[in-house]
Structures are given as structure tokens and as C-alpha cells.
Design a protein around this nucleic acid. Sequence first.
RNA 1: GCCCCGGUAGCUCAGUCGGAUAGAGCAACCGCCUCCUAAGCGGUAGGUCGCAGGUUCGAAUCCUGCCCGGGGCGCCA
Length: 586
Amino acid sequence: MKNLLAQLVEQAIGTLQADGTLPAGLDIDVQVERGRGEGHGDFATNTAMRLAKPARRPPRELAQALVDALPPHRYVERVEIAGPGFINFFLTADAAFAVIRDVWEQGEAFGRSRAGEGRRILVEFVSANPTGPLHVGHGRGAAFGSALASLLATAGFDVQREYYVNDAGRQMDILAVSVLLRYLEQRGGAVPFPDNGYRGDYIRDIASGLAERDGDAYRIDTAALTAKLPADASDGGDKEAHVDALVRRSRELLGEARYRAVLDAALEAILADIRDDLGEFGVHFDRWFSERSLTENGAVGRTIERLVEAGHCYEADGALWFRATDFGDDKDRVVRRADGLTTYFASDIAYHLDKFERGFDQLIDVFGADHHGYMARVRASLEAFGYPADRLEFRLVQFAILYRGAERLPMSTRSGEFVTLRELREEVGNDAARFFYVMRRPEQHLDFDLELAKSESADNPVYYLQYAHARICSVLRQLDEQGLDHDPDAGFQALARLTEDHEQALISQLGRFPEVIETAALAHEPHQLAHYLRELAGAFHTYYNAHQFLVDDAGLRNARLNLVLATRQVLRNGLRVLAVNAPERM
RNA sequence: GCCCCGGUAGCUCAGUCGGAUAGAGCAACCGCCUCCUAAGCGGUAGGUCGCAGGUUCGAAUCCUGCCCGGGGCGCCA
């Protein structure tokens, strides 16, 4: 509808240009918005005010000229000029009823848009380090990223969902050693656990799985393992040096093949857990991109060479630095350390280069806000390769702060225990978790109240929405029980019977859905959809309370049921994008 | 010190590209089940849009400075 009105206005502009009222060659995008207040019509445009300056004529005069030149349309009943030069559109009843027909005809496809047609977009999200289970912070990135991806897909983009697996580097070694030590402990060879190791219970589980599968294959001499190690932090030493030495020793004693087997077992177990966790949460990826693969296939090495050849690097203190300051970063960044190992940053450049080389028009990285320091350097590296920085968008997701009523829960304790995504899902359910995560703009801190998410009351927006859907299903069940029937065709004939204000309001909400999908998708803001759905549910609940649907008057009943079923369809379509269930009864 | 995000009703938050009288939900107060699910609905009250300048027909929105809160500034990932 918005687009239709914009087209009419554009035609009017064309007419005025042809007769010389407006100068030729002005390029203005016509903005049509929904009228808010009572007297402002169904839609409004500020075009006349925006044209006033280039046309050098008063806005109200231009508005009148535009109105005079506006081609008539059966959906437009009348047009008014108001305020400083707004043009307000009042639509015919036909226009409203057309929405109900559209929903019925298009069904699940209602709301899909072609706005992104032909554009390939890659959304990278979660990408949590595979060193342990996902926590509630990752959950927000997961819910946001997947909602964004399906929103983009609904708006016609060709979307790829990707999880970057940081399966290389020091943290993997520490993980391997943590598992090895728990394994040795279980096989009777206890060794003091390093302060910097991963202490969670899942490490023990992985260790026992390893023991079950391979028996004593990884038993090594614990005395040799711990002899003359630098002191750990709790012994007054340095925890980093201690754990690094432990890694080297483990590697020597196990040999490369067995060491790798332990590491891979740990990695696979954790990745499998993450995959299951996300799957149950309704989050799926097209590709799990391994960081290690970039090192092993030489991509990282080639990337560094290219940077060097292009003159963007220098050596200092034995390390190789990328001159990121040439491209707006605060500092230059190391890509190859003095010990010869490439940094995480080097892999990340190679990964983003790979993304571009796969031909995506646009990249979106969803990161936790604590990673924001990364944006400048990654952008810098891509600019060094000649890619325009604006094709990569970072979406920073702030942390979720958990509350139980008024009590704030600690994000993580010293022992390394934190509230996991799985615990959250089990406590409040997937639907509430997803909706709460997506309800807020990602750059807002999220106060996540577990009590509220679980409450079956009006306070809880998830139930409010789902209840609207369940109520409609219940009406249909009542229809059967009361022995009444619903004839959709007759309902369409009788749409003119829908004259109540509540009906007009609900229809108007239904009509917004395609606009919301498109706007939210282009802005990369799923929360807009969440807010819209709540408003839609609100319009329905109001209507439900004000009027009876299952009336004896068959014409009115059929028409109302057509409207109510259209509402159910839109609720379903919207909830599906957010991957929240639409229950038939509650 | 530098960088990123936030500051809108008592609380939690929307507010699209600068538009018309700043909006929801909760909490508070007053009402609504003989009726398709009261997990619902109606009403009342509640505001210096952090502060100060600037830009213009018009600013919560854009620019500058400052204040407050959170996060980040490794040859970690």
C-alpha cells in the first residue's frame, strides 16, 4: 500500500515536471508513512515540504499542485493537505478489505518481499570458542543472528548462515591439556590442575568418553609431565607460562598423533554439544567454518604474503606487523608472532577475504560487544585488500543480564561456572528465551528476568502473543462445537460488514506486516518485528473482547472469521521468522 | 587517556530517512467474566527525551562540548 501511494505521488511529480511546475532532474525519494493520529488519514507524505526548497515554492502550494496532479485510484477515497504541507491519504474500505484477501491468497507467503532479490548476504553469528558450552550471552547472539537471517531471507535475500569455529590456537591446546589431565586423574595419575585450565564438569565427561573409547592409550608418565615446570599462579608463578609449559610437555610425551587425537576428541565433543544446543534452540547454520582449515590449506600464509607484497607490513621485535594505522585503526597489529605462529587476527583476515571471494554482496558479523575492538582492525585489513569497508557490517550484541525477580544473577563465578544457554532454555523454555532475546535492540543491555519469562500472565509478552494465536484456534473449535459453519467465499462477499472501529484497526495492523518485514530486514533489526507482533496481538485481543465472532448472522460471522483467520496467519508468519511456536491451545 | 554502546514516564523499553499533540508494556489507581480461554479488555494518572550550545521551516532524531552508566584498548582468542 505504501509503495502504491508512493508510485502515485511519483506520477504526480512527473506530471508537474512535464508542465514545468517542477524543475526537471530532481531526484527525490517519496516517503510515505502511516498516519498516526485521528485526523491525519491512513497514510501521509511529506513530499511537498521536501520539494519546497529545490522548487523554490511554498510547501502548501506545492502540496496543492501535487494533489491536483495525483492520478485517481480506487483505493484512495480522498486526499487532504494539512499542517505545514503534509498530504494525507484517506483510503477506501476496498483498500482495507484487499488486505484480508491478500493474506488468504498468499497464506504463508504473505509478508515475503523481493526487496533483497538477487543479493547474496552472509551472516556470521555465535562463533563462540569451542572450549565449553554456550552461555546466556551466546544465546542472545544466536537468537538475534538467526532471527536476522530468516528476516533477510523473508525479504528476498539469498542468505548464508555461518559459524566461525575458532578451532586453532593456544586455547585449543589448553583445552586438550585440561582434558588430558582429567583423563589421567581418572586413570589414577592425578596431576595438579593448572589455574588457567578449563575446569568445568564437561571436561571430565569428555575425559571419561576418551577413556571409554581408547582405554589407556594416552597414559603418560605424570612425573615426567610435571617435572621442573614453571610455578603456577597459585604457587606464586605465572599461570600463562605454567600452562604453556604443560602444553609443550604433553605434546612431547604423547607425540603429535596422540596429542592431536585428544585435542580432536575434545573439540568434536564440544562442537557436537554446541550444535545440539543450538539445534534445540531452533538455530541452524549452513556452514561451520573451521579456522584451522585456513591455516592447513595455506590461506593464512597466502594472505600474509599478499599483505607483505602490497607493502602493508613491517617487522619489529621479531614479529610481523600489519600497518593497520594506515587504514584508520588505533594501532598496528601483529599478524605473525616472534615465535613464527600466526595470530588469530591473521586467520580472521583470511576468513573475511574468503567471504568476499565467495562473492557475497554484503557481510554481517554478529559479535558480542566485548569484541568491538576488532571492528577497526578487520575493516582496516579489508581496505588494505581494496574491499569497500561498507560491505562489512558489524552488529554488536550487548550482554544479557539475568535476574530472578529483583535479584541479579552473576554472569560467571570464579570457579568458571556460568549460566548456560541450555540451563536457561530448560528453565524458561525455547520460545520465551528466543522472544526475550530478540525483543530489544541488540545494542541495548538486556535485562532478562527469568521469573517474568516463565510467568503465565499479561506481563509476559511471549504468552500474550501466543495466547492470541491459541484464542483464534479456540474460536474455530467452538465453531465446530456449536454446529456453526464458516464459508470463506461468503465471508469475502460480506467483508463490507466489517465496519467496527476494532475491525478497521485490526485490518490496518495486518496491512503493516509486509512493511514491517521489509523495514526490519533492511535495517537489520528483528526487534521491530517483535514489537509489531505484540501490537497485532493487542489489536486482536481488543477486538475479541469487544465483539463476538460466532454470531447467528451468517454473513457477519463469515466475514469476521475471515478477518480472524487472516490474523492467525499473520501471527504465524511473524512468529515463524522469530522461530517462536504458535500453539493451538494453551 | 583513546575507542564502542547506552541515557526517553516510578521500572523495562519503542520511536524508521529530521516531521504534525513524544508512544507501549509493567507497576499505581478505578472498572469489566450469564458471553468464542480473564494467560484477556477498558479507563485514569504519570515526561526538562542526561546537560549546554549549534544547524533549519521543523530536532528525542543531525553536529560540537560536557556529565553519568556499561564494555574494550595483548606477539589471547
